[in-house]
Design a protein around this nucleic acid. Structure first.
Length: 713
DNA sequence: CTCTAAGAGATTTTT
DNA sequence: TCTCTTAGAG
């Protein structure tokens, strides 16, 4: 016990030993948040305040859940599996599998990932003969998910304001009906269905409320409305919610996260004041001072100031490059130098705001022959060949899964073309049956025969897999379906795909189901719920490249924050209103606090974007860091716009007064309505010119010079 | 069906 | 500019 609490700082200790009532722990970056969470659970258990079964711990990612389990297992001798530790989706899945009848789901319900969901929506649009021009599947998808995440079903939506919206509501209802018919559930549905199950079934709710005496939540600032409602429901009247989060690191508003949930918790659960973890064990003082100064520009914060006793450390290095290419070269030179000084490449990260920025870095890295690893991209279970294989398995588990059937009915090619499939869909729609049932009832003729063969194939797979282990079943499906043979023919990337299929079988060998009778369903669920590690050999000795979002939660000795330019970081789509800008600032805060010892900031004076040269000005975030913390590496740090224009004139036809109005980047202008401002970006030439102007009073605006009257000021 | 050509779209993303 | 998707021809 004393061992458990040894080495905690006073605030951590206060959080860990918080009495059995609700708490909000404001955990700054690098303040030992995970340690507090796991130690609290360990403390609750070892002091007998809770049994393992009384603990419910929720995270956002599988990685975080696993880490919590591992660390907890190291702290207390308890069976971690007896506790409910997992992601929101994982725990909801668990609940729905147990109570599938009450939830109105088939026992073998399958989970749609985002891509599956989009495919299902496209299919729905087609069957309703709606053009996906007018109803972009992505828009429909976000409409549906947005409403589900707000806890609203189609029949509960307020009357539509216009015919278009009315159609969306109709689509929402039709989509849900389609999912019900096919026995599938999307990510948002997992949560909503589980919420509805608990809210409607009082006995069940009472059971879980009394069972989970201690509910702990990680990354609470990322919860959406539905997740918070779900937590409140489970906490019940008197339940204790122990939430850990950091409002300054809320960077997921775009996918529904509500920072406001933090303040809501204080009120709803009668918490007087958050516990603040402000001592940072990661970064040197200068880095923290920069982060603190930056985030101070935001308002509505709960408030927090990071500090360290590790000393000031080095100054932050800032490099302003002439071009994006020069920026990349600079980074590589520095990385080489750091490597020479003995810093492993895996301790160095290059961060950027948007994925597109990685291309240039990659290009230069290949030339420099430096090994690198890019986070993001396709994950294991999202790969085409894996999805195909899983579709066969899904059909074996649940033949009414139309998504799965459509994916593989003609893969490998077996002569069932688009026409034949449309025939099946028409039959299915007419008779209100699944495509599988339609396929089973196909009459005679050439296409019917081919469809019959496919039906037979699936049935055979099912029969022959009786008594097989999971791995044997998967192996059987891959081989007998002809998938394996198909990729053997594929000269281009067949080899890699075959390797991945082998890997899939391997994964099955190591898979331990809770209920062996449900092994296949459990495996398919796991495949949807954890799409697998981001590919690329983890842990290899390579430079780490990733977006700032992907870097959240990670730390490196040296960090490069790149592309610090107005319009890129902060991103132009987010800098119009203060809400968006403040989230961009939090993103910058996250980026800065990734660094342990050395932090580089860089920007470029010209950058290729969407095939056009842009001439951005340095990000305001650089100015928001106190100048005395920064050491400038470029000669022309504070260089005004003039020399920059002269340089760009040498390279590109664009030069001073290239536009017919004689206005240039960096120039002060005056507008009748918006007042005085500075030109920060230009697009087009001649008369057809748009300028982005930062107005002192009205903020950043794009103006078309054909219409806007601007005079030099 | 497979290959090519043209078109759209281009922040951030886990489950 | 580049990449991904879809339409149309062979």
């Amino acid at each position: 016990m004393s061992d458990l609490l040894a080495g905690l700082n006073p605030e951590q200790l206060r959080a860990v030993t918080w009495p059995a009532k609700s708490a909000l722990v404001l955990a700054g970056a690098g303040s030992g948040k995970t340690r507090v969470l796991t130690t609290r659970i360990a403390w609750l258990l070892s002091t007998g305040q809770s049994s393992p079964a009384g603990v419910l711990a929720v995270t956002f990612t599988n990685k975080a859940a696993r880490e919590m389990q591992t660390r907890l297992a190291a702290q207390v001798p308890v069976n971690v599996r007896a506790m409910w530790i997992g992601t929101f989706h994982g725990l909801c899945n668990r609940l729905l599998r147990i109570h599938y009848r009450d939830a109105g789901l088939p026992q073998t319900f399958q989970i749609l990932d985002s891509a599956d969901q989009q495919a299902a929506i496209k299919r729905l649009l087609k069957s309703l003969e709606l053009s996906d021009e007018k109803y972009p599947p992505r828009a429909v998808q976000s409409f549906i998910n947005g409403n589900k995440e707000a806890g609203v079903r189609a029949d509960r939506l307020p009357p539509a304001l216009n015919p278009y919206e009315a159609k969306l509501v109709e689509l929402y209802a039709a989509y849900d009906a389609q999912c019900r018919r096919e026995g599938v559930v999307d990510f948002a549905e997992l949560l909503l269905r589980s919420y509805e199950l608990l809210s409607r079934n009082e006995a069940l709710r009472a059971h879980y409320c009394s069972r989970f005496s201690h509910i702990l939540v990680d990354e609470f600032q990322d919860t959406n409305r539905l997740q918070y409602a779900w937590l409140k429901l489970l906490a019940g009247e008197h339940g204790a919610l122990f939430a850990v989060g950091d409002d300054d690191q809320s960077i997921y508003a775009f996918r529904g996260a509500e920072v406001g949930n933090m303040r809501a918790l204080l009120a709803d659960f009668h918490v007087a004041e958050p516990v603040r973890l402000e001592q940072n064990y990661r970064s040197m003082g200068t880095i923290l001072n920069a982060a603190n100064a930056l985030i101070e520009k935001n308002d509505g914060r709960l408030g927090k100031n990071l500090w360290t006793d590790a000393g000031e450390g080095e100054k932050i290095r800032f490099f302003q490059a002439m071009s994006d290419g020069e920026e990349a070269e600079f980074i590589i030179d520095e990385v080489k130098a750091l490597k020479r000084d003995g810093l492993p490449l895996s301790d160095i990260a290059v961060l950027y705001r948007s994925n597109a920025q990685s291309r240039l870095m990659e290009h230069v890295l290949v030339n420099a022959q430096l090994p690198y690893r890019i986070y993001g991209g396709l994950r294991f279970f999202e790969r085409q060949e894996i999805k195909h294989a899983l579709a066969y398995l899904r059909l074996m588990a649940n033949p009414d899964d139309d998504n799965a059937l459509l994916r593989v009915i003609n893969v490998p090619a077996r002569g069932i073309g688009a026409r034949s499939v449309e025939g099946l869909q028409a039959a299915g729609r007419e008779q209100g049956i699944s495509l599988w049932q339609a396929a089973c009832g196909a009459g005679s003729g050439r296409t019917a025969a081919k469809i019959g063969e496919f039906v037979l194939l699936i049935e055979k797979l099912r029969e022959r897999s009786q008594g097989f282990s999971l791995a044997e079943t998967i192996s059987l499906a891959i081989n007998d379906s002809g998938l394996y043979a198909m990729y053997e023919q594929d000269k281009k990337d067949g080899e890699e795909r075959l390797a991945n299929l082998d890997e899939l079988v391997n994964a099955a060998v190591g898979f331990l189901p809770d209920d062996p009778a449900q092994a296949l369903t459990e495996f398919l669920t796991a495949a949807s719920l954890e799409a697998g590690e981001h590919q690329a050999e983890a842990g290899s000795e390579a430079l780490q490249l990733m977006t700032v979002h992907a870097a959240k939660g990670l730390e490196f000795d040296a960090v490069f924050v790149t592309g610090l330019e107005e319009g890129l970081f902060p991103h132009e789509n987010s800098m119009q209103d203060s809400k968006g800008l403040q989230e961009e600032r939090r993103l910058m805060y996250v980026a800065v606090t990734r660094a342990r010892k050395r932090l580089y900031l860089s920007s470029a004076q010209s950058r290729m974007l969407h095939g056009q040269s842009r001439y951005p000005i340095p990000s305001r975030f650089i100015d928001e860091i106190p100048a005395e913390l920064i050491h400038s590496l470029s000669a022309k740090v504070k260089a005004p716009a003039q020399p920059q224009l002269a340089r760009s004139a040498a390279k590109a036809p664009r030069r001073q007064a290239d536009n017919a109005y004689g206005l240039n980047i960096g120039q002060s202008v005056s507008h009748a309505k918006f007042g005085i401002g500075v030109v920060i970006q230009a697009e087009g030439s001649g008369e057809d010119v748009r300028l982005q102007i930062n107005f002192a009073e009205h903020g950043v605006k794009w103006l078309d010079l054909r219409y806007a009257k601007l005079t030099p000021a």
